[in-house]
């Protein structure tokens, strides 16, 4: 259904390497406009590495990453900045600035990239915090709020400029089921109301079935994608042992010996 659409992110033959250690070897991937794509896989398979490359934090050893028509592995600074303006990122640790209140955290990108007067920005931040249900906490410092609230605040900051593409690194990891469900609902809401393309890195099975339009699964041994498609279909029909094991939470002794 999505395949007729134009891809907004295209990853071509991506090779990612830290030092001598090759993490991803020849990954090809297309992310389509308006979809929620979940990148999954076991620990250490390169999920976060893929994400870091897609947002330009790490430079690939070879291959191209085209985000909305601009190849971010090979472009000038102005084009790169335009691309960054289109994306929002929620980091695994939320990465809120510890010395600033939640409102100040959100004001950083808004004040930099828009011409709104200060009082209007304050109103906007209140609306945005209200959207993630944090309206009463605008003057709190990050270390004064809980982990789930930090994630929501990080999400609100990632959404500050209404990005076209949203990257979420483990948005529900380490949260209680209720907080995780709240985040999942927010993700769906954002995707529906603004047609935002969302790329999520996670291994929370429950979230995957709830939000994913499409999943891709990475694996450590092949250093690439071993499966992609609808999560329910993969769970029911995949022949691949690792994919089956992942969705059914089975530990296979073969996988263990491989990682050791």
């Amino acid at each position: 259904m999505k395949n007729q659409q134009k891809p907004i992110i295209t990853v071509q033959n991506l090779v990612a390497q830290y030092g001598e250690n090759v993490i991803l070897d020849g990954v090809n991937l297309e992310v389509f406009k308006g979809e929620i794509l979940v990148v999954l896989g076991g620990s250490g398979c390169g999920k976060s590495t893929l994400l870091r490359h897609m947002v330009g934090l790490d430079v690939p050893r070879s291959g191209n990453i085209i985000v909305d028509g601009i190849d971010i592995t090979n472009c000038n600074d102005a084009d790169f900045k335009t691309t960054l303006r289109k994306i929002g990122i929620l980091f695994q640790s939320s990465a809120l600035f510890g010395s600033m209140t939640l409102a100040e955290n959100m004001a950083v990108p808004i004040a930099e990239y828009s011409d709104l007067p200060k009082s209007v920005i304050t109103d906007l931040i209140r609306m945005k915090l209200c959207r993630v249900d944090l309206s009463e906490f605008e003057n709190y410092l990050p270390f004064e709020i809980s982990g789930g609230m930090k994630k929501r605040a990080g999400l609100a900051r990632a959404l500050a400029l209404n990005p076209e593409i949203l990257f979420l690194d483990e948005p529900t990891a380490g949260l209680d089921p209720v907080s995780a469900a709240e985040i999942d609902n927010l993700i769906l809401q954002i995707n529906q109301s603004s047609k935002t393309t969302i790329v999520i890195v996670t291994h929370e099975l429950f979230s995957i079935f709830k939000v994913a339009h499409r999943v891709i699964m990475l694996d450590k041994s092949t250093k690439g994608i071993i499966a992609q498609g609808d999560p329910q279909y993969l769970k029911d029909h995949s022949e691949n042992k690792k994919v089956k094991g992942f969705f059914n939470r089975e530990s296979s002794s073969g996988q263990l010996s491989e990682t050791l």
Binding site: L116, V120, D123, L124, M127, R131, N162, S193, S194
Partner: peptide, 14 residues
């Protein structure tokens, strides 16, 4: 229409 649109409405109201 997005929340920046809502912001316009809000500021008009004010």
């Amino acid at each position: 229409f997005d929340d920046y649109g809502a912001l316009i409405l809000f500021e008009l109201k004010h």
